[in-house]
Nucleic acid binder design. Structure first.
Lengths: 334, 334
DNA sequence: AGCAAAATCGCAAACGTTTCCGACTATTTT
DNA sequence: AAAATAGTCGGAAACGTTTGCGATTTTGCT
């Protein structure tokens, strides 16, 4: 359990440990024969540099704190995957924290991350209140928000163009012949406001009536989508398509519809948003709007690296293009 | 960006920084009035203890390395969720690494984690070769394997009783009236050997013929399940049920069957293994064997904590009970 | 009131690394 | 041949914390 230190190999090599450090770091300030001798000795002795000691003097941990509401969630775990891969490719490691359901825990974990001396924080906010919740810390360490649109708030973030997503989605529905499109979902976060706005803009251009069915729940899960959809379907169905603000909600709608014998897409077409993995499953085959999760994640770590390594100060907002994924839950009307 | 240190609050309080340290750590070796005064001063000044400096002297980082093949995977992200929650509840943070597709990357990341001085490593192996692959490191730091059954190898692990899972699954199928049950899946890891064994044992007890259809792929995804299933269904269907060694494979089978017009569960019943989230989706509703992911994760970090904190040496094998989840893809034969 | 004991606090070492600066050697220049 | 220069290397400080030990003060007891 006791690991070999610089001092150990220095003693073995008969040099000072400053020399060993220089040999490893590739400093020009050292002879090439001694360097090679030391390097060989290092891996013979199984030396690996102690990053916590290194971090101490370098005042840099090469650590990025990644905080997500819950990693147990297809959307976030996909983001996390790409973020970790990209971060590690650039020499960073990821410290993962679930910010859980409440704001208190979210604040707790970013405080923890600060104590860990992370070089930067990548956070996908759990609620619109997150910005205020952790604002006291965001000026202590480079921070970028991920996936949530903060509009023009003074905070760097990368998100999909949510408004455009719903816009092209309802246009697609229109082209399929749909004239009565219901928008299903909450509008409590900026992201979801934008999604609703994209729908509204398309409706205006197309001369369509705007119809909303709002979920009052703050968390978007298939369960509450299901509950809401049962309420929805208790009323007469005077629309031919539903735009769900979220794939999870769309899945809930699908479940309710199946139970009630409402044919999708026969009776009503359905389109979701996010393109989480589950939408591509057999029998589900949900038409949806893709958020470019890979791009979002790598852009976010690039942005963060820029702040960390170059000390870039201002706030940059990166908006990525979503794309329509045509699958099986939208029917063309004759 | 410059954070306040012990020395800063010591100066402000007019005491030595040793005193401040003791005040925070709750040492009895300090007056209660000075303690409270210092503590108040600390959060006035926004002091948070620097964990890297602390780790340096304590020779303990309170860090657990979590390495998974890819966090982008429902099964692993669920494990990761519970592991992080449980770890943090006990004062540990999680350093997340994807071990990627190849053994080289897996070895690389555990070496990295060693350099990071993590107190322990939690690893869900990417292949049966993982044990050999990282054995050089597992005696340098407490390590527990997660989800993969290592049989009686000298390595602590926690896994589900895979053999029992398939055993009760095929018994269930039998009770439903099925007499021709095909086992679908690879058998290259110990875990999958055990699953196959459970099936075989049940078949022997029940007097059933054993039928196998093996996937030669090493990775279990819905895509290769789909490819294999298309091959399978090219042959005559002389069985009434399929036991898929994995939910992912089961999903692939479902896809192939739907395309070919083979009714599930009308023509053939289907049961999976793992109980990943997707199996509970509408229209999928896959009958499956649940791995108790939450229990597995918390038991794994408990085991790791025991090694870390108590220096427990030996190898302990924790086998958790799976359970049958009856859903809609298994039909009773009249 | 005097002394032992307990309580409280400061000093300084230590953890393992990086890097500035100075010292020493070998090489080149005048 | 002497001096300047370049090339190598070691000494030591520094990063921010914890903690053993000693010093000082306060308390308790007779």
């Amino acid at each position: 359990m006791k690991s070999v230190t610089l001092k150990d190999v220095a003693k073995a090599a008969g040099v000072s440990y400053a020399t060993v450090s220089r040999a490893l770091s590739g400093s020009p300030q050292i002879g090439s024969e001694t360097r090679e001798r030391i390097i060989k000795l290092c891996d013979e002795m199984g030396y690996t540099t102690n990053y916590v000691a290194r971090s101490m003097v370098m005042k840099k941990t090469d650590l990025i704190g990644l905080v997500v509401p819950s990693i147990d969630n297809q959307f976030m775990s996909e983001l996390a995957y790409y973020a970790e891969m990209s971060a590690r490719a650039h020499g960073y490691n990821i410290m993962l924290c679930n910010s859980g359901p409440d704001l208190k825990q979210e604040k707790t974990v970013v405080k923890l991350l600060l104590g860990r001396q992370v070089d930067g924080i990548l956070i996908v906010p759990q609620s619109p209140k997150t910005y205020e919740n952790i604002r006291a810390y965001t000026d202590q360490v480079p921070t970028v928000f991920l996936s949530e649109n903060l509009r023009d708030q003074p905070q760097s973030y990368v998100a999909a163009d949510n408004s455009r997503g719903t816009y092209v989605g309802t246009k697609y529905l229109y082209e399929l012949g749909h004239r009565d499109i219901l928008y299903f979902g909450r509008r409590h976060t900026t992201t979801h406001q934008l999604r609703a706005e994209g729908y509204m803009r398309a409706c205006q251009e197309l001369g369509l009536r705007q119809r909303f069915f709002n979920s009052e729940f703050s968390r978007s899960s298939v369960d509450n989508g299901y509950q809401m959809a049962k309420d929805l379907f208790a009323n007469p169905i005077d629309y031919t398509a539903i735009f769900a603000s979220t794939d999870s909600n769309a899945l809930g709608i699908l479940k309710a519809a199946d139970e009630l014998g409402i044919d999708i897409p026969g009776r009503v077409s359905l389109i979701g948003f996010d393109n989480i993995r589950s939408t591509d499953l057999p029998r589900i085959n949900l038409t949806t709007i893709d958020q470019p999760k890979r791009e979002m994640a790598v852009q976010a770590v690039d942005m963060l690296r820029d702040k960390i390594e170059n000390g870039t100060q201002g706030y940059v907002h990166q908006i990525l293009m979503p794309s329509l994924i045509k699958r099986g839950t939208c029917r063309a009307l004759v």
